[in-house]
Every structure is written in C-alpha cells, then in structure tokens.
Lab assay of single mutants.
Amino acid sequence: TGEEYIAVGDFTAQQVGDLTFKKGEILLVIEKKPDGWWIAKDAKGNEGLVPRTYLEPYS
C-alpha cells in the first residue's frame, strides 16, 4: 500500500530507474526517501523514482 499523489507537472526520466509521468497523473508513493526522490508506481504498474517537488497529495 501507499499514498496517492497527483503530478503537478510533466517529468521525463533523466536516468535508468526514474519514472516518466504527465501532469494530472495519479501516482502511488511507496517509499519517501530523504533525498527528495520518492519511489512511486503509476496506473500501469510501472515503478520508479520521482521528484517529490512534482507531486501533491491527492484526496
């Protein structure tokens, strides 16, 4: 389980392990790392690192 967040901007993977997403996408945050990069999963089940500055809590 995780917390749902909504993307407030588009993000394109910079390196292997990053997750590309579009503004408005709902992501499930699995782990919040202290460096500001969180592990998240998208609706298709893809998992990767995302920058927390692009996310806001979804309710």
Rank of each mutant, 00 (worst) to 15 (best):
I30L: 14
D10V: 03
P57E: 08
E31Y: 13
T12F: 12
P34Q: 13
G2K: 09
K41L: 11
P57C: 05
E31N: 09
P57K: 12
E4F: 15
G48N: 01
A43K: 12
R52F: 14
G24W: 06
I26A: 03
K41D: 02
E25F: 05
K22C: 06
Y5G: 01
Y54G: 04
L55K: 01
E3V: 11
G36W: 04
G17W: 07
D42I: 02
I39R: 14
G45P: 00
N46P: 01
K44T: 10
E25R: 02
F21P: 00
T20Q: 07
E47G: 06
A13V: 03
P34L: 10
W37V: 07
E31R: 07
P34M: 11
Y54D: 04
L28W: 14
A43Y: 11
K44D: 13
I39F: 14
G17S: 08
E31F: 14
D10W: 05
W37L: 07
T20I: 03
E47N: 08
W38Y: 06
F21H: 01
E4G: 06
P57D: 04
N46F: 09
G24F: 05
Q14P: 06
V8A: 07
K33V: 07
G45L: 05
P51Q: 09
K33Q: 10
K41Q: 09
P34F: 11
K41P: 00
G17P: 03
F11P: 01
E56D: 07
F21A: 02
K41V: 12
G45S: 05
Y58F: 12
E47Y: 15
P51V: 04
A7M: 03
P51C: 12
A43M: 13
I39P: 02
E56K: 15
I6P: 01
L55E: 00
E4W: 15
A13Q: 06
Y58C: 08
T20A: 09
G24T: 03
Q14D: 08
K32W: 05
G9Y: 15
A13T: 05
E31G: 08
L55V: 07
K23T: 09
N46D: 08
P51I: 05
T20M: 04
K22L: 07
G36R: 04
L19K: 02
F11G: 02
G24D: 06
K41C: 07
K33A: 09
I26C: 06
P51A: 07
G9I: 14
L19Y: 01
Q15M: 12
A13E: 04
I39W: 15
Q15F: 09
P34H: 12
I6Q: 06
L19N: 01
G24K: 03
D18V: 15
F11H: 07
P51L: 13
I26H: 07
K44C: 10
L19E: 00
S59Y: 14
I26M: 07
A7S: 08
K33D: 07
D35W: 05
I6E: 04
I39K: 10
D10P: 06
F11E: 01
E25N: 08
G45Q: 06
A7H: 00
D42K: 05
A40W: 01
V16E: 11
A40L: 03
L28R: 10
Q14L: 11
K22D: 03
T1V: 12
I30G: 03
P51M: 10
T12Y: 15
E56A: 15
W38I: 02
L28D: 04
I39Q: 07
G45I: 01
T12M: 11
Y58I: 09
A40I: 04
G36K: 04
W37K: 08
L27N: 00
V50S: 02
A40K: 00
G45N: 07
G36T: 04
V29Q: 00
L28K: 08
R52G: 09
L19M: 07
W38G: 01
K22G: 06
E3W: 14
N46V: 09
W38A: 02
Y54V: 10
G24N: 07
F21K: 00
I6S: 04
A40F: 02
I6G: 02
Y54I: 08
K44H: 13
E25D: 15
E47Q: 11
V29G: 01
P34I: 11
I30Y: 10
I39T: 08
E31M: 11
W37I: 07
K33M: 08
T53M: 11
V16H: 13
R52D: 09
I30C: 05
R52Y: 14
V16I: 12
F11I: 04
I26S: 03
L28P: 00
L27Q: 01
E3R: 09
D10Y: 05
I26K: 08
R52L: 09
G36Q: 06
I39N: 06
I6A: 04
A43H: 14
T20R: 04
K41F: 09
T12G: 06
K23C: 09
T20G: 11
P57I: 09
K41A: 06
V29I: 15
L27M: 06
K41N: 05
P34C: 10
T20D: 07
P51G: 05
W38F: 05
K22P: 02
D18R: 15
K32V: 05
G48Y: 02
D35N: 12
